[in-house]
Amino acid sequence: MTKDRGRERQEEKETGQKKTVRLYTRQNDKTLYQLERDGRIINQRIYVELHFGDIAPLFLDSYDWFTRKASAIVEKPEDVQAPIWCSISRENCLRPVPGTVVYVLEVPEEQVIYFDDEKWDYVLNRIYLPKDKEDQEKYKQHLKELGVVNGFEFFQGRYKGMYPEEERRIQESWNRIFDIDRWSVFNVCGNIWEIRREWVLRIVHPGEDVL
């Protein structure tokens, strides 16, 4: 992962020998009961399904892929089935709306899975994620040589099952979401596997400012 001065500007502090980072995440307000009861909040696959509703099947494979890859970066607790999406800045975090709250967290950096949210769109759309513009042009030429018109249809469309090697090539390209070429509060996310009670600095309700 690329580190630069942009990362140094991220809100962080030293706590003993552990560096911590400030994260922000909007969650359903029912998680307040989970936090009170269990001392932690975790995500389950069913919550992703409920969140996306009818279009959930289009995204679940991508979320399952992310979960597998992210667990190789930060070990996943056995009872967790999906990560918790977080913003690294209050400027870019989702504001609380009715039925939700925003958790302001101070999390040990070793627990954070950083990735490029702009690159994540390629995973959601299940298309090839190029390294750079040159690689993108080479891939376009590669599709022409295959006789493929639409690179969106390898996993769900006219080419499904026809090009298994191409499917593997695309999936391998998705690993680049963890390579952060440009560090900013607008494209970098920091996911975690759980919210622990001791990490919660503040709970922001609708109508309150995220400070």
Rank of each mutant, 00 (worst) to 15 (best):
P206C: 11
Q141H: 12
L129D: 03
P164H: 00
R9H: 06
R202A: 13
R7F: 14
V48W: 13
A56Q: 07
T67D: 11
I73T: 01
F115K: 01
N150R: 13
F59G: 04
W85R: 09
Q27R: 13
R196T: 00
I88S: 04
R197V: 05
V21F: 09
V48G: 02
E137I: 13
A56L: 08
Y63S: 07
V107H: 02
R196V: 00
Q136E: 15
V185S: 12
K119E: 06
R176N: 08
E166S: 03
K69L: 06
Q10K: 02
E208C: 04
P83H: 10
Y159F: 11
I46M: 14
E75D: 12
R37Y: 08
F52M: 07
T2Y: 07
R40T: 06
L211G: 01
Y159G: 07
K76N: 05
E91N: 06
Q156W: 09
K138S: 13
Q156I: 04
N175M: 08
T31C: 12
I41K: 04
Q17A: 13
Y33C: 01
A70W: 08
K138V: 03
S173Q: 03
G157Y: 07
V104N: 02
V107W: 04
D64M: 11
L146T: 08
K131V: 14
I73N: 03
L105R: 00
I192Y: 05
E110N: 10
R95Y: 11
R182C: 09
Q17V: 08
G6T: 04
P108H: 03
K69R: 12
E172Y: 09
L32E: 07
S173I: 03
E8A: 11
S71M: 01
G147F: 09
Q27V: 06
M1D: 07
V210K: 05
P77L: 11
V148Q: 10
N150H: 09
E172A: 14
R90E: 12
R40Q: 13
G6H: 08
P206F: 10
R40D: 04
K160H: 05
E110V: 09
L58S: 13
I46S: 15
W174A: 07
F66V: 09
